[in-house]
């Protein structure tokens, strides 16, 4: 009986040791800011040891190691961080997969062309770091919230990604275009039949392409200084010619979107972005009344 008790105690000790080992958070380096945000919500399961910059001028706060530019991360800093898992974007980082996995590190590349894909990626990441329950629940809540926000009548919208001197339409093949479609907006730019380039969801806006567009609302997204890009776009549509149709149909409703929420995919912040979009569309709804 005594021997049985000793064995049971030893077993219990072993079990608690194994449980403690299993509960140790996974050391993650992420090349996607929204993955960092999601993993910060499950600190018992994952520790973000290295991350890329959201704004190239703003270093990543310590103690997380700064990997620099998401398009060209620092492999030295990555090696220094000693992650167990590196999470990147399939479209952006596939060609670096071998380099990212140097030293036997596991590399997880997720597909994120739309809202559903982003949520699927979050579920996969949750399953990998042992936080499936938490992230599944967060995703389910986010999906419910988006459904609650759907607008009554379709609103023709032009989503513009702006860089100095250039404008691109964001089609339904981008996360923002997909979110707008889910919320009941009607994107005035169709995805091209044969998409080209590294970002197939972005269609360059040229004189010929814009002549027939009649959005009631224009949304401007930019990585830095969206207000400046918005003003540049307003000047462009005020210049007349093929761009004047956009000015007439939108009634000058050109909104710059908050770069913290819209410059890159916000992941679990998508419902917050959805609320901002619906809120921003109110002037259109009121104008219709």
């Amino acid at each position: 009986m005594r021997r049985l008790g000793t064995l049971a105690a030893a077993g219990l000790l072993l079990f608690s040791f194994v449980s403690a080992r299993a509960a140790e958070p996974v050391r993650v380096a992420t090349l996607l800011p929204w993955v960092e945000d999601a993993l910060r919500t499950v600190p018992d399961h994952a520790t973000v040891v290295a991350a890329v910059r959201r704004d190239l001028r703003q270093p990543v706060p310590e103690p997380t190691l700064d990997l620099g530019n998401p398009h060209s991360p620092s492999f030295e800093a990555l090696a220094q961080a000693r992650p167990e898992l590196v999470i990147g974007d399939a479209a952006l980082h596939a060609r670096d997969a071998v380099r990212l996995g140097r030293g036997g590190v596991e590399v997880m590349l997720v597909e994120t062309p739309g809202v559903a894909a982003t949520f699927d990626a979050l579920r996969q990441i949750g399953a990998r770091v042992g936080a499936a329950d938490e992230l599944d629940a967060a995703v389910a809540e986010a999906e419910r919230e988006i459904e609650r926000l759907v607008v009554d009548r379709p609103i023709p919208v032009l989503a513009v990604f702006g860089a100095p001197g250039r404008f691109f339409a964001m089609t339904d093949e981008t996360w923002l275009g997909d979110l707008l479609a889910r919320l009941g907006f009607q994107n005035v730019v169709e995805p091209p039949e044969s998409p080209l380039g590294r970002y197939p969801g972005l269609v360059p806006l040229g004189d010929e392409a814009v002549a027939s567009l009649r959005p009631e609302l224009v949304l401007v997204v930019a990585h830095g200084e969206p207000e400046r890009i918005r003003r540049a776009f307003e000047e462009k549509i005020a210049s007349g010619g093929p761009w004047k149709g956009i000015r007439e149909s939108s009634g000058g409703r050109v909104r710059a979107l908050d770069p913290d929420l819209f410059a890159t995919n916000p992941g679990l912040g998508i419902p917050k972005a959805a609320r901002a979009l619906v809120e921003g569309a109110r002037p259109v709804v009121e104008a219709r009344r």
């Binding site: 398009h71 492999f75 479209a91 060609r95 670096d96 140097r102 080209l196 380039g197």
Partner: peptide
């Protein structure tokens, strides 16, 4: 690189020349 973006090397870095990420292979 524009037409086959998913398979081509990053154009800007290739055009200027970069040693970033080079390994033993």
């Amino acid at each position: 690189t524009f037409a086959f973006a998913e398979r081509a090397p990053a154009f800007a870095a290739f055009l200027v020349g970069s040693l970033n990420g080079l390994g033993w292979q």
